[in-house]
Design a protein around this nucleic acid. Structure first.
Lengths: 363, 363
DNA sequence: TTGAAAGCGTTACCAA
DNA sequence: TTGGTAACGCTTTCAA
C-alpha cells in the first residue's frame, strides 16, 4: 500500500522544512502573499465570486498567472468531498468478449464528454470477473473517481447486481433487462440482428442460413440470436436455419463454421454474432475451396474495424461505440448531478453496413 | 464479501457513538470509534507499524473490514504531497499517426505495470499539438497524476522540448536523439527496417524496391527510411529504389502506390512505413489487376492488428507496443522513486513477421 | 504502547 | 467588501 515511492524518512540533516524554490508547487498562500491579501480572498477571486472587487480580482489573476498557480486537485477533492474524475472500468475478460477496438471507440466517446466537463478520466482494468469488483470498488470507494462506467459484464456477473443495488454512481454498458434500477447504455441488438437477417433473406433470397452465436450467458449474443430468429420469422419466406456457438474469438468462429459446413451442406449464408468470428468463418470457407459470397454469403456484427479490412469486405451491423461512450458519460454526469437519468436504460440504434460478403448489392 | 454501499448500520437505540449518516464514507475516525482507540493508532495499525501491538492490529483490521473502510485517496494524496496515479497522454494527432490499436497495446502494458504497483491510471487526450501541452501540464501541475507517459509527439513539437527542460516526471514514447536529457522508450526502427528490407532483397531476390515513407518531420519515418536504405546498401546486391511520401493513412498509402506504379513500372516490391499504408498499396495494386506477391511483393511495419487480417497476410515488422508500455511505466516509476532511469533513452527491439505478402517462404 | 495535535491545500462560514 | 478560521481525511511527530 505504499503510494508511489518507498517514502524514505526525510529526517536527514538539521534543516527544518527547507522549501526548494523551483520544485515546490505554487499554492493559494503563495498567491495571497504576492498580492498581499488572504488565502480565502484569492480563492474567491479565482472563482469569480461577486463579493470580491474587480481590481482585486485582476490583481489576483495576474499574480496567479505570473506565479503559475494551478489548483491542487487533492486539496480540492478533499474539501469538496468528491474528485473531479470518472473511471472507465474494463474487466480483462471484456477484451476477449469485445475485442480491442471496441474499447478504443468507447473511450473516444467518453473522453469527449469528460473533456467538455473538464473532468479527468481514469481507466481501470480488472484481472478477471471474480476479482473484478475489487479494482473498481476501490477506485470508487476511495473517492479517486466519483463515478464509473463499466464497459463489459456478463449477464450473470454477481458484481453487477451488487453495484446496481448499492446505488453507486455507475453506468453499465450493455442491456440489463433484469436490473431495472441500474443505469445502462445498450445497443438494440435484436433490431440490428433482425435487420441484417432480413437483408440476407429478402434482398439476396438466401433461405438456408446458419448463425454463429456467442456464449448465451451474455445478454448480447442472446439478443442477436433472438433478432436472427425474428428476422427469419418476419421475412415472409420459409427458411431453414442452424446454430453453432463460439466465444467471439476468430478461432471459435472458424470451428463453428467447420461444424456448420459439415452438418448443413446446403448452407447459403452464415451470420456470425461478431466480426471476428465471421472472419474465422471466412478462413474456413476459403480453406474448403468455397467462395464468399458466391458459394456462401457471410455477415458479421460490430464494425469495429476488422470488417473493413477483410477481402471481401464484410457486411455487418455497425455498433456506434463512440456514441455509446458519449451517452454513458452524459448519463453518469446526470447521476452525479443528482438528476435521475431518463430513461435509466437507454438503447442506441445500430446501422446496417453493406459490403461485398453478402453478395452483389441490389443497387 | 464487503457490501458496496456503506451499510447504514441502523443504531436505532441511543448508541454511544454518534451514528454515521447513511451515505457517508467510512473514515479512520469511524474505525477508531468502533475499536475504541485513536485515529492515529488505526492509521499505524493498518500500515502495520511495529509500534502497534498485535491484538490491536487484529482488532483494527477486523473493524476496518467489517465497516468496509477504504482510505480516501484525496486525503492520502494531500498528506503525501503526491497522488498515487500516473497519466498516459495522447495527443489526438497521435491517433492519426499511429492508429488506434497501437494505443490499446501500449495501454495494456502500462496498465500491467501500474496495477502491479497499485497505482491508478489516467488517460488524457489533447485536442491538438498546439494546445496539447495545456491538458497534460494541468494534469501534472495539479498533482492529479504524479507523472506522465506521453504517447506520441512530433520531433518538432515544442512542448516536448519544454517538458524535457522542465524536468517534469515524464517518459516519452519514441526516439528523441536531440533531447538527451529526456527519458524515452523508443523502437529500434533503423534495425527493423533494415532487416525487412534485407529479407526482401536477400531471401526473395527483389532488387527494385520502393519505399512509402511517413512524414519526414517525425523521427519514426526518418528512422525507417534510413533503415530501408541501409538494408539496400548492406544487402550486397545492386538495387534500385524509389520513394513516395504518405501520412500513415491507408488513403495516402494508396496514393503513394499509385505514384510508384506509374513512375517505376518495373517495381518488384513495396515496403511501406506502416501497415495501414501497406494496406492502401494493396488495394491500388489489386485495382490494377496485379497480384500480391506474384507481381509486386509487399511489406509493412507495426503489426498492430491490420496486417493479420488482410489477404494475403502482410509481412511486417512487429513493434512490441505492450512491452514499450510496460517499460515506459517502469521508467516512470524509477523517475518518481528518485532513481535515475538507466539508460535514460531505451530502445526496444523489433521482430520480423513473415506472412504471405512478400512471397513464398524460403522455409 | 498509545493519544493528541499539527499540517497538507482548498473552500465555506462567520466576524469585522 | 474583506480576513480569519475551521474542516475535509490522512500521516507523522511529539508527549504521555
Amino acid at each position: 500500500m505504499v503510494p508511489l515511492a518507498a517514502a524514505p524518512s526525510r529526517r536527514s540533516g538539521a534543516g527544518p522544512a527547507a522549501p526548494r524554490a523551483p520544485g515546490r508547487a505554487v499554492t493559494l498562500r503563495d498567491v495571497a502573499a504576492e498580492v498581499g491579501i488572504s488565502q480565502s480572498a484569492v480563492s474567491m477571486a479565482l472563482a469569480d465570486h461577486p463579493r470580491i472587487g474587480q481590481p482585486t480580482k485582476d490583481a489576483v489573476r495576474a499574480a496567479a498567472a505570473r506565479l503559475g498557480y494551478v489548483p491542487n486537485s487533492a486539496g480540492r477533492a478533499l474539501r469538496a468531498g468528491r474528485s473531479s474524475s470518472i473511471a472507465v472500468v474494463v474487466p480483462n475478460t471484456g477484451q476477449h468478449v469485445f475485442g480491442h477496438l471496441y474499447f478504443m471507440h468507447l473511450l473516444v466517446g467518453v473522453t469527449a464528454e469528460a473533456n467538455a466537463r473538464d473532468v479527468a478520466l481514469m481507466v481501470s482494468t480488472n484481472p478477471d470477473e471474480s476479482h473484478g469488483v475489487a479494482a473498481y470498488e476501490r477506485v470508487l470507494r476511495s473517492r479517486a473517481a466519483s463515478g464509473a462506467i463499466v464497459a463489459s459484464a456478463s449477464i450473470n456477473d454477481p458484481n453487477v447486481k451488487r453495484m446496481a443495488e448499492a446505488a453507486l454512481p455507475v453506468v453499465l454498458i450493455g442491456r440489463f433487462p433484469h436490473l431495472p434500477q441500474a443505469v445502462s447504455v445498450g445497443v438494440d441488438d435484436v433490431a440490428g440482428a433482425e435487420q441484417i437477417t432480413r437483408h440476407l433473406v429478402e434482398e439476396h433470397g438466401l433461405t438456408r442460413i446458419a448463425h454463429i452465436s456467442g456464449p448465451l450467458d451474455h445478454q448480447q449474443p442472446v439478443d442477436r440470436y433472438e433478432g436472427f430468429r425474428a428476422g427469419l420469422a418476419r421475412s415472409g419466406r420459409a427458411c431453414t436455419h442452424s446454430l453453432a456457438i463460439g466465444d467471439f474469438s476468430e478461432e471459435s468462429g472458424r470451428a463453428a463454421a467447420r461444424q456448420i459446413l459439415d452438418s448443413m451442406t446446403d448452407v447459403q449464408a452464415i451470420f456470425a454474432a461478431n466480426d471476428e468470428m465471421a472472419y474465422g468463418a471466412l478462413l474456413e470457407i476459403r480453406a474448403r475451396g468455397l467462395r464468399v459470397p458466391e458459394d456462401v454469403a457471410l455477415a458479421g456484427y460490430d464494425d469495429f474495424g476488422v470488417s473493413r479490412l477483410t477481402t471481401p469486405g464484410l457486411t455487418t451491423v455497425h455498433v456506434p461505440a463512440e456514441d455509446m461512450g458519449r451517452l454513458a458519460a452524459a448519463q453518469l454526469f446526470r447521476l452525479l448531478d443528482g438528476t435521475a437519468p431518463e430513461p435509466a436504460q437507454s438503447v442506441v440504434p445500430t446501422r446496417l453496413v453493406l459490403r461485398e460478403s453478402c453478395g452483389p448489392h441490389a443497387g
